[in-house]
Design a binder for these strands. Structure first.
Lengths: 287, 287
DNA sequence: TGTACATCAGTGAACGCGCGTTCACTGATGTAC
DNA sequence: TGTACATCAGTGAACGCGCGTTCACTGATGTAC
């Protein structure tokens, strides 16, 4: 499976030939170029079909048909249907992750002028970008945040891409903490004036879980979007926990909107969404 | 379709014979009893299979096989696969709705002694009951709150059962409003002492949507769990909107837990869940 | 209470479809000398 | 630069499977007189 995962992205190149050293960089021979291109085309056609049929309607034969190939030819590129699905899932996570990261980068640049509130602007931008992406790519969204495809078990290779969005949010909070833009620090449980979120204190077990996760993040190689600092910034468990809650609210709302739970009530959901996102940014401590 | 929906629950009884008047009540003849029973058994076997295969793995042939019938025989009971699915969906919505309603009723009874906070206890009880049901019936949960089954369009008959949970929550809030248990009334935008939620004011459009929905609820026949009062209780648009946000958070969190987005971080999610639910109850104004 | 007829449940065969995957094969592309 | 061999992409047929739905049928259950 690990071998496959490598092949999914850059199929022949990046693999060792039997005789020589591993090849580097981009494909060189016509064969390798053709292979890389077809691997991409198959994935794109599969994504196109996903749009119409949903995750488990995805059919290798239909993809091959549309590409003018015979179905068995696909097995030169993806060893099974599940591997093709995995590639689509990874792509979707990455696309959404990049969307969020770019929104944050963009909001950071814009809001650079004003002194405070930059982190809040980034947070809101990420939320709105995520919603927009989900609305533009509902089937890909459903693929990663909908009910799991029965019989399919996501391989480890999906974990890192799946973490990009949460990590992006954590990055925003970390920068906010450094810049002193959080309404409530870990040691200041009740700053009355500025309107801090009125949430109950963390239960012990929850605080431990949050601390463990923070430690893992700090130790991990992929602390997000915090330029160069070898040390991961400190973040209070309270803040992380509230961010997680805001995160679940965000995706709960997007899912409800996409999956039709709002029909007949809060539609269009734009205003509700903006209000909710702003409320939960405040809840997370951003001001 | 409307005719079918009637048949799904009480198949032969409740329909008119060609010659006479509509039959009333429970099935009388052996045939009618057998029919009602088999209709139920088919649905239950289908639900059992759902547990293993997921929504679109549901197969009429497999259900028939398990019941020792020939597949075509099922068409005497459900005119198509989609109708069977619809029956399962309606059942799931009703089961979850009833779970929530009973939790509320139970918490109401228990907390009847203490003066205040009854509504808050009911709210929390409903949230925990919903999560427990979802964990106990993950496939049924996925059926109604997961990604929509491609090619299936939910008929109108699902709307009312789907509304039970949100209506139950609204009922709790309505009673809380009457009892003066809400932290923030519609006319009191900033009660400083009691720790009101620090949320931005409602945008105009959102207030209008909420008001429209409230009016529809008041006019509708199914104002929930408010004993007898012909007039629907008044609820501030702000309160309704925040409740909707809490509602999306609840289901977002349950979905994340069930669909595996928490693996490796906040698991077990019990403490996180309790904390989140309490926080958002406060956000909705319950104290 | 008994008979004649109508209704209905369940059968078994069939239609027509689509799927994932394997396998022996051919022809083209690449490599080593 | 040219030839001999190895690698690889794509073909076409096949295996074995399962599905939803239709239809003419039989036998049992129900109803009217």
């Amino acid at each position: 499976m690990t071998q496959h995962d490598d092949e999914l992205e850059v199929p022949a190149a990046g693999r060792e030939t039997r005789a020589g050293a591993p090849r580097s960089g981009a494909p060189r021979t016509a064969r390798e170029r053709a292979r890389a291109e077809l691997t991409r085309e198959i994935k794109e056609e599969a994504r196109r079909q996903l749009t119409k049929t949903g995750a488990d309607g995805l059919s290798l034969r239909a993809v091959a048909r549309e590409l003018g190939m015979v179905s068995s030819a696909l097995y030169r590129y993806y060893p099974s249907r599940d591997d093709l699905l995995t590639a689509l899932i990874i792509d979707a996570y990455n696309a959404l992750g990049e969307t969020a990261e770019q929104a944050i980068a963009g909001a950071g640049a814009e809001a650079g002028a004003e002194a405070g509130g930059a982190a809040r602007a980034q947070w809101l931008a990420a939320c709105h970008a995520i919603r927009a992406w989900a609305r533009a790519n509902p089937q890909e969204y459903a693929l990663i945040y909908g009910s799991p495809v029965p019989g399919y078990r996501a391989p480890e290779a999906t974990i890192a891409p799946a973490a990009r969005v949460p990590l992006a949010f954590v990055g925003v909070l970390a920068r906010a903490a450094e810049a002193g833009e959080l309404a409530e620090g870990p040691a200041a449980p009740d700053g009355a004036a500025a309107g801090p979120p009125a949430a109950p204190p963390l239960p012990a077990e929850l605080g431990k879980q949050a601390a463990t996760l923070l430690a893992a993040l700090a130790a991990g190689p992929a602390w997000p979007a915090v330029p160069d600092g070898a040390e991961a910034p400190k973040l209070a468990p309270e803040v992380l926990t509230r961010a997680v809650i805001a995160w679940t609210q965000l995706f709960g709302m997007v899912s409800f909107e996409l999956f039709g739970q709002f029909v007949g009530s809060f539609e269009p959901a734009d205003t509700l969404f903006a209000y909710a996102v702003a409320s939960l940014a405040a809840f997370a401590g951003l001001r």
